[in-house]
Write a protein that binds this DNA or RNA. Structure first.
Length: 443
RNA sequence: GCGCCGGUCGUAUAGUGGCAAUUACACGACGCUGUAAACGUCGCGGCUUCGGCCUCCGGGGGUUCGAGUCCCUCCCGGCGCA
């Protein structure tokens, strides 16, 4: 993997770049489609490609449980398994520490609004005995499968091993995504844990990469012959699998919640972490993830604290963030990659993005609205269907409803980031931001 | 005509004398930020100063402190016998 910055945004941390992976280039800033279980929900890979998605993100925890990482490995890796030819990433399972742990069974998000003080007050009731599917130990996290109740202990080493089997181009260190409702004391403990886990993730990654390269080295001559012989010789899944085992890029994850000291400390630690290789050189992370917990109102400052410290020449991924206003904020503050379930989840659940805000397509007013979701949108949905028809599909619980809405939403968000990228190249980022957000947020 | 069963929120249902009354669907509104999510929450007789108040289970009458629930009668529907 190689990252090149092509242009910087004046007076800010923003930049335009290009991230080269074995499965193709990613023009950054870019929005990554979330495909947790090796599928972008309700869309086939052709539709994902057609809306302009460049890279898909799968999930370690989900694919480990089902179908199992060894199945994915034997299939030739996540991309081949799901028939996605472009670049892929996998998340480490760190988010499930939150979603199946502190957040399980509760109505809390990793993003809070500070105007809702109930979530931030540390005097909240002691819920340590509340049912959770994820329990944190010093060494790793014990997960109780949401599918069959079986227990699985995931350590940083285990997460990295699974991710190597899943075979994405970019993988993440195992971290703890904390709840924004945790107090400073807990955030501090969790951060120390995440940092230890980062070292162990990097260590295990290095070990696996060296083992894989020596394996490939020993096989090198025969592989070369196979390659020369052409596609037929490569048709065996085992061979293709091994042949594509160039070591993935590993991104370390910065945490620290909403606290300035912790965020900066984490950026310093993760950004400069290096471990000695057996050949005597030293190696650190290939890029960085910035993990939640955030408050909506001060997310921009948190991102800025971090990106002022992280090495400029490496890519940064703001994990799980993706509302339109957040994308402008992220880019301006030096983020290169975003992913978010919002476009597909909101779409499936009947909320649709438009340039003048989100609409809930099931609402009465759309039942006889024969206009397009957006008259000037170039997506497949807008070119072919009316609001009335999409509302009808949702009311009828038809599968196509979620598909058409997801196509539009994903197109909307992916292209918003592309336009943001272009606006930097055209030197009018701030004008574009102002113009877009005025219309989007005005009602 | 006789006998039996039944009529409860748009539909389908639950309901033992203490009930503005169960559940599902439908309907209305909202929520969702590294996917436990084609999901979830709330509302669904009216008014409310949120303490309550009024009107309610086919119609009418009765028993009772109190009736959707028990009794009488009428209307309507289904089945059976003539």
């Amino acid at each position: 993997m190689q990252f090149k910055i092509e242009k910087k945004l004046d007076n800010s941390l923003g930049r335009v770049g290009i991230l080269k992976t074995p499965h193709g280039d990613i023009l950054t800033p870019a929005f990554v489609a979330v495909g947790t279980k090796a599928t972008v929900k309700s869309l086939n890979p052709e539709q994902v490609k057609d809306v302009g998605v460049q890279v898909v993100l799968g999930n370690t925890y989900h694919l480990y449980l089902q179908p199992g990482d060894e199945i994915v490995r034997d299939a030739g890796g996540i991309g081949k398994f799901m028939n996605w030819q472009g670049p892929t990433m996998t998340d480490s399972g760190g988010f499930q520490v939150f979603s199946l742990g502190a957040a399980y069974g509760k109505d809390i998000s990793k993003i809070v609004k500070t105007i809702d003080p109930s979530l931030l007050i540390p005097e909240r009731f002691d819920d340590s005995d509340a049912p959770r599917l994820a329990k944190i130990g010093q060494d790793g996290v014990s997960f109780k499968s949401h599918l069959d109740g079986s227990i699985h202990y995931i350590t940083p080493e285990k997460s990295i091993q699974i991710q190597h089997n899943l075979g994405a181009d970019i993988i993440f260190a195992f971290d703890e995504c904390t709840s924004p409702t945790e107090d400073l004391k807990y955030q501090k403990e969790a951060l120390e844990r995440t940092h230890r886990w980062a070292e162990r993730s990097l260590e295990e990654h290095k070990r696996l990469c060296e083992a894989e390269s020596s394996f490939l080295g020993s096989q090198f001559s025969s592989w070369k012959i196979s390659s020369v012989l052409g596609p037929a010789a490569l048709r065996s899944p085992q061979k293709e699998n091994s042949a594509s085992l160039s070591c993935p890029a590993l991104f370390g994850i910065v945490q620290g919640g909403r606290d300035e000291n912790l965020r900066k400390k984490s950026a310093k630690f993760i950004g400069s972490l290096e471990l000695a290789r057996t050949d005597g050189s030293r190696g650190g992370f290939d890029g960085f993830g910035i993990g939640g917990s955030f408050a909506k109102e001060d997310m921009s400052t948190a991102v800025k604290w971090v990106n002022e410290i992280l090495p400029e020449e490496k890519p940064r991924h703001l994990l799980g963030i993706g509302e339109p206003e957040d994308l402008f904020m992220g880019v301006e503050n030096g983020v290169d990659l975003f992913d978010c379930v919002a476009p597909t989840r909101l779409g499936r659940n009947g909320t649709i993005y438009t340039k003048s805000g989100k609409i809930i397509i099931m609402n009465k007013q759309f039942r006889d609205d024969f206009s397009r979701i957006e008259e000037d949108c170039e997506c497949y949905t807008c070119k072919n269907y009316t609001r009335s028809y999409i509302a009808h599909l949702f009311h009828g619980k038809e599968m196509l409803a979620g598909t058409l809405a997801s196509i539009h939403n994903l197109y909307f968000i992916v292209n918003l980031v592309k336009k943001i990228r272009q606006s930097i190249l055209d030197d009018n980022f701030f004008e574009y931001k102002k113009e877009f957000l005025k219309k989007y947020l005005e009602h």
